[in-house]
């Protein structure tokens, strides 16, 4: 039998109401994600990427279409799915360990097991020595690592990441991308990464989903065949990058000619 955790999105449509007017954020989004796969989603900001992740996470239940996990419709949130928000959303009044421990409030682990799990995940994201620190004593990159540890500590089957490295400088970002790749290989879980950084999407993803805005739709899905672990200047990756960037170039030309 196949591993569980098969995610299916069928014809998702989502509307928001602003000042009494409904506008469509997502339209006709369909996607199949196999267990253990790494899927990247790229698109301009505002094209509904965060909204899509919120739907998959179960934070928002008002949409049309179906989101199925192993054939069953999603209802609400679950500890089997973890999320790293765009902003780290750590609680400022809790130390690093307590922030991670918060995720285990409703886990079946014993107290000792919890302590071990927390320590293990602090090490996984390389934050030994900062266990007692408060969030506002951490740099942006460190906060994001804590958020990743907090999302992983429940050992979810699926991890959703919403532009987790968006606010970081280039050096830190490259480092954390490499670490995320390592964690993904070690843990063997499904990851869905939302980003507006094409290079990041290609470096990490088995497939890259290119979205277009107004309303948010899937424009193209680009497979990236290069095996993991990858190196950044792999020739195949560079080729895929050219082809994805081409999609955005067309879009820009379209927008400009539409505006004219």
């Amino acid at each position: 039998m196949a591993k569980p955790g098969h995610l299916t999105l069928r014809n998702i449509r989502k509307q928001y109401t602003v000042n009494g007017n409904a506008f469509t954020v997502l339209d006709g989004v369909s996607l199949d994600i196999a267990p253990g796969e790494f899927v990247s989603i790229v698109g301009h900001s505002g094209c509904g990427k965060s909204t899509l992740l919120r739907l998959v996470m179960g934070l928002d239940g008002e949409y049309e279409g179906e989101i199925l996990l192993d054939g069953h419709r999603l209802r609400g949130t679950s500890l089997d799915r973890g999320i790293v928000f765009q902003e780290h959303r750590l609680f400022p009044w809790l130390s690093v360990t307590d922030n991670i421990g918060l995720a285990l409030q409703n886990s079946p682990l014993t107290k000792a097991e919890r302590r071990d799990a927390i320590q293990q995940h602090v090490e996984l994201v390389g934050l030994q020595g900062f266990e007692k620190a408060w969030p506002n004593q951490l740099s942006g990159g460190m906060s994001q690592r804590v958020a990743i540890a907090r999302a992983l500590v429940n050992r979810p089957e699926i991890l959703l990441l919403d532009e987790p490295f968006g606010a970081l400088d280039a050096l830190n970002r490259a480092k954390l991308q490499a670490e995320l790749q390592r964690i993904w290989q070690v843990e063997g879980i499904t990851m869905i990464l939302v980003t507006h950084d094409v290079e990041e999407a290609i470096f990490l993803g088995d497939r890259v989903v290119v979205m277009e805005p107004r309303p948010g739709r899937i424009k193209r899905i680009v497979p990236v065949a290069t095996p993991h672990p990858r190196v950044r200047n792999d020739c195949n990756l560079l080729q895929v990058r050219e082809s994805v960037l081409e999609e955005f170039r067309e879009e820009t030309i379209e927008t400009i000619s539409n505006a004219a």
Partner: peptide
Amino acid sequence: MSVQVIPSTPALRRA
């Protein structure tokens, strides 16, 4: 969280 039924048209919503 509970699921709220939200009326769909603007007029209904305003009412």
